[in-house]
Simulated scan of single mutants.
Amino acid sequence: MKKIFVYAYMAQNLGDDLMVRILCDRYPNAQFYLYSDKFYKTAFKDIKNLIIYSSEDKEVKFWNKALKHIKKTTNGFMERLMEKCDATVHIGGSVFIQHNDDYSAFLKADADLRKFSKKVYLIGSNFGPYKDEQYYLDYHQLLSTYDGVSFRDYYSYNKFKDIPHVVYAPDVVFNYQTDNSSNVEHRVLFSTISLAGRNDNFAIIQYWEVYRKFIQKLAKRYLELGYKITFLSFCEPQGDFYEINEIVKTHDFDCFKDKIEINNYNGNIEESISLIKESEIIVGTRFHSIILGWLFNKPVLPIVYDNKTLQVLKDMNLKNYASLEELEKVSIDDLIGNI
C-alpha cells in the first residue's frame, strides 16, 4: 500500500476539507497521512485510509523536540513523515498568491516539500494573482522540479505549460459524487465572506461596506419575492460566520426573521452540502459554493472577489456574475432575472 503525505490548508474551510475527502475517497488503496489541527481527528474520523497527526500528539512533540536539537528545524515531525512516505500531494486552490512583497517564507515552505519528499505532486491549484515577475519566475523554477502539477484553470496552465509534467484539470470538487434525490425548497442559499483584514497586495477590504449592503439588498429582494434565505458560513476562522451575523443585523430584515436561517460549517461536510442541495438558487461568493451549486444543477449567481473565480467563469464561458467593483451600480432585479 502506497503511503501518501497530504499537504493542505486545513483551517476548517469546507472547500479545502472537501478536496481532501475526495482525494482519500478516490484512492481507497492508498494510506494517507495528514498533519493538522486536532479538529480533524473528529471531522475526518470516518475516513478509514487517513491517519491524522496534530502538534499535541505525544509522538509529534517527541520528534519535534528531538529534531529541533539534531537538525535545527521547527518542523521535524512533518519533515520526517514526508521522508517516510512514497510521495507528497500538495492539494489546494489559492495556494500561490503573492500576498506581500516578501514571499520568502512561503517559497521555502513549498521548496521543502520537494526537499523532503521522494516524489511531490500539486493538485487543484490556480496561480496568482502576483505582483512581481520574480515571484512567477521563482515558482516556475520550483514547480519544474515537481513530479506532477495540475492547475484548475487555463490561465494558470498556460503560464506553466512549457513544463512537460504540467497539465490542466477542472477543480477537484467537480469529482464530488452528487445525489439529487432531496426535496428542493423555495429557498436561496447565500455563501458570503468577510472582507475584513484583506488589505494585502490585492486589498479588497475597500469593498467591505459595498459588499455587505449588496448582500442585504439582494437577500431582502428575494424575501420580498417569497423565498426563504439560508446563509451558510464556509469558514468561521476566516470570518464568514461573523460577516453573516453583521449582514442580518439590518432592520430591513425585521419582518422576515422567521424566513432567515444561519448555518455554520463545523466539520460535517454532508450536512452543509445538503443545504445547497435542498436550495433552489445559490448566491455564491465562496469559490466552492459556486462549484457545488453547478454540480447540483442549481441556478447560480457568482460574486467575484478573486481572480480564481473569474478564470473558471471564463473557462466555462459564463458571463452572468457580479464583481466587487460593480456591486454599487448593478441592478438587483436584472441580476435576479438573469440567473
Rank of each mutant, 00 (worst) to 15 (best):
V60W: 02
V149S: 03
Y135C: 07
K119S: 10
Y139K: 12
S150P: 07
D153V: 03
Y139F: 15
Y155T: 08
S104L: 09
Y154K: 14
A109G: 02
V167P: 00
V60I: 06
R80C: 05
P170N: 10
D102K: 02
I163Q: 03
I163R: 06
Y103Q: 01
N100Q: 14
F106E: 13
F106A: 13
A87E: 13
K161D: 08
Q98K: 08
H165P: 04
Q177W: 06
Y157M: 14
R152C: 07
L107V: 02
Y139P: 03
V167C: 09
Q134D: 15
P170D: 08
F62Y: 15
L67C: 08
K161I: 12
I123M: 14
L142D: 01
N100R: 15
T88W: 05
V149E: 00
Q98H: 11
F174M: 14
S117L: 01
D147I: 10
S150T: 13
P170A: 08
E133D: 15
N175M: 07
S104W: 05
Y136G: 03
Y136E: 05
K159C: 15
D162A: 14
L143K: 07
F77W: 12
Y121Q: 02
L67F: 11
V172I: 15
V89W: 04
Y146P: 02
F174W: 14
A66Q: 12
I97G: 09
V60R: 05
Y154P: 11
L143N: 00
S144D: 01
I70R: 01
